[in-house]
Amino acid sequence: MASIGELRMDDTFQAIKRREHVAWKQLFEIYFKKLVLFAEYFLMDREEAEDIAQEVFVDLWTNVRELPEISNLKSYLFVQVRNRCLNRLKHLHVEDFSKQWLLEAQMYAEIPEVEIDQELLKRVYGVIEELPDQSKVIFKRCVLDGKKYREVAQEMEISVNTVNTHMKRAYKFIRSRLGVSFLILLSVI
């Protein structure tokens, strides 16, 4: 079999449709890293970008026989990655909104007053201070000041996606240091 460089992309698609592993492997080797970088531009998360790029290749291999003819395989791959990234960002936005709603619901529910352990509170603030500078500022504005992501993005002249990424990283960092229980403490601060 000729290499992809020697074949036209529609020939490559036909080879993949015939389940020729060599064609699929070559396509993967040529485009995987490029697709990861493209996805990382959207998500600002290398692991998720790699997952999405891999999913696109797996889906191509799995569903190639059901797909209509693809004359521009390169464009198809990039569009698939872009769409998955946008769906992931949309999901993260809904997830963040749901978390915020849950925290507000817990605060307004008739939950007995929780006595705040001052030592634990100091630990939480200490871990927040360990965050990278921009993540720390964004986290404080969103969580401690109660501002919406859009407000913080406008104030800092950055995108809402950037705020979302910093918040996700901040929560991950804090969870790794304090466990999940810190969320309840944050809701009463």
Rank of each mutant, 00 (worst) to 15 (best):
R82H: 15
R123P: 01
D45N: 15
S75M: 15
D133W: 03
Y108H: 13
M44K: 08
L120G: 05
I52T: 03
R46A: 10
D51S: 15
R82F: 10
T62Q: 15
A53P: 09
L102N: 01
L43R: 03
Y125V: 00
A105Q: 08
V64C: 04
V79N: 06
N63H: 15
V56M: 06
L89S: 03
E69Y: 14
Q80R: 12
D51F: 02
V81P: 03
L73E: 05
V81A: 08
S98I: 06
E130V: 01
K140M: 11
N63Y: 08
F97M: 11
D59S: 15
D96V: 00
R84M: 04
L77C: 06
L73Y: 05
E95S: 11
Y108A: 09
L77H: 10
D45S: 07
I52L: 11
R46S: 09
V114H: 02
E69T: 14
R65F: 06
W101M: 13
D96P: 00
I111D: 05
V56Y: 08
E66C: 08
A105Y: 10
V127H: 05
E69W: 15
E115H: 01
F139M: 09
S135L: 02
V137S: 08
D133Q: 09
S71R: 04
L67N: 03
K74I: 07
H93S: 10
Q54S: 08
E47N: 14
E104I: 10
S71D: 02
L67P: 00
R84W: 00
G126S: 13
V124H: 05
A49C: 08
S71E: 03
H93M: 06
L121F: 12
Y108Q: 11
E55M: 14
V137W: 01
S71M: 09
K99D: 03
V114E: 01
I128K: 01
L121N: 02
Q118H: 13
V58K: 10
P112L: 09
R84N: 04
A49K: 07
V64G: 03
E47C: 12
Y125N: 10
E50V: 06
F78T: 06
E110N: 06
Q54Y: 11
D59V: 07
Q100H: 14
K74C: 14
C85F: 07
N87K: 12
H93T: 10
N72V: 09
V81T: 10
D51N: 15
Y125L: 11
